[in-house]
């Protein structure tokens, strides 16, 4: 893998109807890093993710993915994305776990092609990775919230991405499943070398797991080592929220 940054944001500013949502964001993600992106509700976290994914266009600044400007980037199968909405998709949709995970390959396969033996094998493998082999032919609506979330991770994994972006993936998932979920992320990060971006509003949970932390509230208030963050935590949070904040530590 080349050593150029996986994500590079230079001076990115985004306004929504003239209301600034993100101001002058500079951020990089190097290969193999696990970045936690935290910030309060409405801080622009999801907007930033959408900009990285090319769903929104910033008014100013430059975004590069794998060293290429976003406008020329075509290799979307290198990027896996698990959205916040994965929790609130239409649960009545008639699709099996197998069918949903297959979707992860569609972009890579290109138009006018059908799944062959090789693709099906990959799908089975991804389902096994997230530990849902017993549910392959089950309707996705019948699974629990935690299981559904794992289906969406399998879908993001199946194209063997180099970068996985997860936007608040544990919202509405029970504590046991959340612990399992972090275990899974750890595995992917350590064993498979996948670079990760994890968006969360829960600073306490993610500081202990990530290599780098970015704190966002319209502007980027911190971007660096989680350990440095812990030392300056109060100062940064006070700046960010504009008042005193106490962080509740969880130890899952």
């Amino acid at each position: 893998m080349s050593q150029e940054p996986i994500i590079e944001l230079r001076d990115v500013t985004f306004r929504y109807d003239n209301r600034p949502v993100l101001e002058h964001i500079n951020m990089t993600l190097n290969p193999g890093e696990f970045l936690g992106l935290v910030g309060p509700n409405g801080s622009g976290k999801s907007t930033l993710i959408k900009i990285i994914l090319g769903l929104l266009k910033p008014q100013e600044g430059e975004v590069r993915l794998f060293g290429q400007p976003l406008s020329r980037f075509k290799d979307w199968s290198r990027v896996g994305y698990v959205s916040q909405k994965a929790n609130s998709f239409n649960t009545g949709f008639p699709a099996t776990v197998f069918e949903v995970v297959s979707m992860g390959l569609f972009g890579k396969m290109g138009l006018f092609k059908w799944m062959g033996k090789k693709e099906k094998e990959k799908v089975y493998q991804a389902i096994e990775t997230v530990g849902l082999s017993d549910y392959t032919r089950q309707n996705i609506g019948q699974l629990s919230g935690g299981q559904q979330q794992r289906v969406f991770i399998a879908r993001a994994l199946v194209s063997e991405p180099d970068l996985l972006i997860l936007d608040e993936p544990t919202v509405g998932v029970d504590a046991y499943s959340v612990a399992q979920f972090y275990q899974l992320l750890d595995n992917m990060h350590r064993k498979m070398g996948v670079s990760l971006v994890l968006v969360s509003h829960d600073i306490g949970v993610i500081t202990s797991r990530v290599d780098r932390l970015a704190c966002l509230n319209k502007k980027l208030f911190f971007h660096g080592d989680p350990e440095d963050f812990s030392e300056q935590q109060e100062c940064i949070l006070n700046q960010m929220y504009g008042h005193d904040v106490h962080v509740i530590e969880h130890n899952h």
Binding site: G54, Y81, S83, F89, M103, F106, F112, W114, S159
Partner: peptide, 22 residues
């Protein structure tokens, strides 16, 4: 038949389908 997988993905979750390059 030719567009089955694209139609299926877009119907299921449009945003994710778009980010995968459809």
């Amino acid at each position: 038949v030719l567009l089955y997988k694209e139609l299926f993905y877009l119907a299921f979750e449009e945003e994710a389908a778009v980010t995968s390059g459809i």
